[in-house]
Amino acid sequence: MSASYPPLSRKITNLVMLALTGLCTLLVLAVLLTILGYLLWKGASSLNIDFFTKIPAPVGQSGGGVENAIVGTLKLLALASAIGVPIGLLGGIYLSEFAGGWSAFTIRYTTDLLNGVPSVVMGIFVYTLVVLPMHHFSTLAGGIALGIMMIPIALRSTEDFLRAVPRSLREGGLALGASKSETIFTIVIPAAIYGIITGIMLDIARVAGETAPLLFTAFGNLYNSPGWMQPTASLPVVIYNYAISPYDVWHKQAWAAGFVLLSGLLVISVISRMVLARGKKLSHG
């Protein structure tokens, strides 16, 4: 054996660069754990029962909670789902089962572009569409903004999971004499249902944290918002308003609200992944 190959200098480069890539990964993970850990620590220490059951106390007084914002967020999400889920499902079925050629391409591409529209621009759009004609902010406008934001992901994930259903299942249905629509509703959709539900839950989790589109649609409210036609508080907007306020009491509430919001999102995200795993197990078993 003469001089070893590759030469020492390249072996050193190899080790240094590979170590650096490992350090990059460690750095990203450290940032993630710091964020989650800090939020957990600050949030959990600011939580109490009042936080869930009371509306905000007047400025300068301690105590109070964000019950109105929690209810507001749930109402906004219910309305957003009522708008975004049906349109997303129908569009997804259309793309996977009916569309072809330029129609499919156009819809698919437009959906991806709509998904990339900055959320603050979506807020402007719904402001001009709903708030200007109505002359006031409302839960309705906020729900519409979040609902429109839900459509692209609901649509594309439904399409993907429907497409993954094997062609043989569809042919089996048709061979038994079922019509195309019967095949879709009794065979194709049930086969993909776990995936579709997962996609929609992740979609809801995504819009639940959106703040910018709510600033000019649902606005905010210090009290409970009855019905759908009045401005409403929501957790993300409360976090924003409290975080930039000068009061320590409100900063604590912002941390608590951030903790509640993020835990909710992570729980939805983990549960939906479990639903998907269970669906996979069932379909292979």
């Binding site: 990203v28 993970l29 940032v31 993630l32 710091t34 964020i35 989650l36 800090y38 939020l39 600050k42 959320s119 989790a205 995504r206 639940a208 944290g209 959106e210 703040t211 910018a212 993300p236 976090i239 924003y240 975080a243 930039i244 900063h251 912002a254 941390w255 951030g258 919001l261 993020l262 999102l265 992570l266 995200s269």
Partner: peptide
């Protein structure tokens, strides 16, 4: 999976961390 959790954190929470941490 863990790193993709970072992508699920809402923007306003990054702002909160930005201001106070």
């Amino acid at each position: 999976f863990l790193i993709e959790l970072l992508a699920a954190v809402p923007s306003v929470i990054y702002g909160l961390i930005g201001i106070f941490l």
